[in-house]
Design a protein around this nucleic acid. Structure first.
Lengths: 135, 135
DNA sequence: CTGCATCCCCGCCGATACTG
DNA sequence: CAGTATCGGCGGGGATGCAG
């Protein structure tokens, strides 16, 4: 059950299944801005089986640019999804590893992967039908 | 368990919990491109309780522009998440309604909302700690 | 090996004005 | 009421080059 509730200072709030969501400062937006990125979800999936080094992740996602690999990892680290450990070897190696938060989120991601694989055929079909109808 | 598998023609495929995911033509990307949009998830949540008209959705999401409301609805319709029904009244009214696919996806969205509300505090804290450390 | 800096393109999205 | 058309900013993200 959804409900739109106004508050005193004019902040707009909506209730979803009893969960209050501010539209100005929305928790879901935080998460969506992470999972919504082009590489983010793939990165987390890449760390599902255990810690990996920079170049290992690079091989795991062959078509990511070095720039985006670094940046995506940084963003995920910032939000607490993973940790970054530098080993002072020569040459240096850096290990990335999911935090408990990251693993918790991974569960959601698995549901998404599952759902996508079950429904992508239907989606593609709908898309084709829609496009055909426009012509 | 994840595994990277090469195929004959050089297409890269990764297995996630036994679900094959092509990196060139990825089912999850399709879905992420939907859920990742700025307004998409909110729209689907807005239709959770039943069909709504254009202007009702507009009031439900006060800060969306007319342009993005139209476009987001169009995209969701195209991918089969909702239907669009025009009633030839004067003035005309148009009703948007989730399809079974849309409702199915809504379940995922609820999980996301739930998870976000449970973990956004931790995320905000991690972010603050990270930012503080940089200074 | 693991990064940072720079340049630059392109697509998302907001603002605004106009239609049946 | 429910759109469509156009313009323009801004930021995501690719390519390349340099550095510790």
């Amino acid at each position: 059950m959804n409900k739109v509730v106004g508050s005193a200072d004019g902040e707009r709030v909506i209730l979803i299944d009893g969960v209050p969501m501010s539209m100005d400062d929305c928790p879901v937006r935080d998460v969506l801005d992470s999972v919504g990125g082009k590489w983010t979800s793939l990165m987390i999936l890449g760390l599902a089986d255990g810690p990996r080094r920079f170049s290992q992740l690079r091989r795991f996602i062959p078509d990511i640019s070095q720039r985006m690999l670094t940046q995506t990892l940084r963003d995920l680290q910032r939000d607490g999804y993973l940790t970054r450990t530098v080993y002072p070897t020569q040459p240096p190696s850096v290990e990335y590893k999911l935090t408990p938060l990251g693993h918790s989120f991974l569960a959601l991601l698995r549901s998404l992967v599952q759902w996508s694989s079950e429904n992508h055929t239907a989606i593609r079909a709908a898309r084709a039908a829609f496009d055909a109808e426009q012509a």
